[in-house]
Simulated assay, not measured.
Amino acid sequence: MRYIMMDVFKTSIYISIPIILIALLKNKILSKYTFKLNYMICVLITLRMIFISSIEVYLPFEVLNKRNNTLRSIAYISENNGNIDDFFNLIFYIWIIGTVCVITNSIYKQIMFYKKMKNIKYKVEDENIIKILEKEKKNLKVKRNIDIFKVNGLSSPALIGFINNKIIIPNKDYNQEELKWILRHELIHFKRKDNLLKLLLIIASAIHWFNPLVKILNKYFKEQCELSCDEKVVEKFSVEEAKNYALVLVSSLRYKNTLKGTFCSSQFNNYEINLIKSRVEGILDYSRYKKGTSISIFIVMIAVISIFSINTMTNQNTAYASESVVSTDFKSIEDEFVNNITTRLTEEEKKQVRIVRNEDNSPTILVGDSEAFSINKSFVKADK
């Protein structure tokens, strides 16, 4: 458990660095680049949060007896470390409880949302709406069947679900142009699998619930998800079309939202005035943003390297044995270890081997006048 918690804390520290940079640079530097780039940064940080460094495998001693010149050290769990282990056990259980609470709360909200919506949604069978949906699906090369529902008390259209996605829209009349843009927006969310990415963010946030910086990432992730979706919708729009699209976005503010959407739904609009302002500004001035292709490649490389380096740092240079080893006869383990070590020496080295006893009666193997190997009850090292 100690090693699990150390890996979690270490990963949390790593992801804190880019989150702090986002908070410091989002208005001065990141705002000059496309929302797509900013959204990709959020997704990469989220994935990195989930891929904590590899958890150590607790190996039985019998496996270690096999000849393996790559094995450099063997660390035993000592009975003398009881206080430290108890502390980390307590931290581990607190972390587990916090993680379960965050996930349970998210699941509860999701269930309540669907429960409230169950009796106030109506499947759309209007041929005009279905025709517009099929046309937009064809333009975006979406082949999956997606149903549309009208929902009372909803102010903004949204894409709901993770696998069997559905589009929900307020129970009010839209003209054909408004429907085209609304459905295109939600289909882009579907095509990018934004709801699944939001689910990953919930899992990552649950793992790192103790890190206050995760709240900053959650908010920025949500903002960039919607902004980048708008960006995709209007990328081929004329100035007039972009203005009309922005008006549709603003017009939904007039409707009262009595059914609050969950985090794992992609809404066309919400009531955060600052975000709506940013979306309108982004729609009307899309061309001024830099694509940042080279930065994108660099960020991806950093993310991949960070995962790889952490996993290899804890590779089989050190192997941790289970507690059952401690309770066995240490003398037999000692003899087996000494025999195993001497078999790795050359014939010339074997002639110079001497075994001396330390104050605690543990052996030290000397090759000539040089110490080659030593062993004691809490730590074994092989420095050849």
Rank of each mutant, 00 (worst) to 15 (best):
M6D: 15
D7Y: 06
D7G: 11
V8T: 09
V8I: 11
T11D: 05
I13L: 12
I17F: 14
I17P: 12
I17Q: 07
P18A: 00
I22H: 05
L25P: 11
K26F: 03
K26T: 06
N27W: 11
N27V: 00
K28G: 00
K28P: 00
S31H: 03
S31Q: 06
K32W: 04
F35M: 07
Y39L: 02
Y39D: 11
M40H: 03
M40A: 06
I41P: 08
C42L: 02
L44G: 07
I45W: 09
T46R: 09
I55A: 01
E56Y: 07
V57Q: 09
E62K: 13
E62V: 08
E62W: 10
E62S: 13
V63E: 15
V63D: 15
L64C: 09
N65W: 10
N65Q: 15
K66M: 10
N68E: 15
N68M: 10
N69C: 08
S73L: 04
S73D: 13
I77S: 11
I77M: 15
N80K: 02
D86K: 07
F88E: 00
L90V: 04
L90G: 08
I91Q: 03
F92K: 04
Y93D: 09
I97N: 02
G98M: 12
G98L: 13
T99E: 10
C101N: 12
T104S: 11
T104I: 12
K109G: 09
I111Y: 14
M112Q: 13
K116Y: 06
K116T: 03
M117T: 12
K118N: 13
E127L: 11
E134A: 03
K135F: 00
K137V: 00
K137C: 05
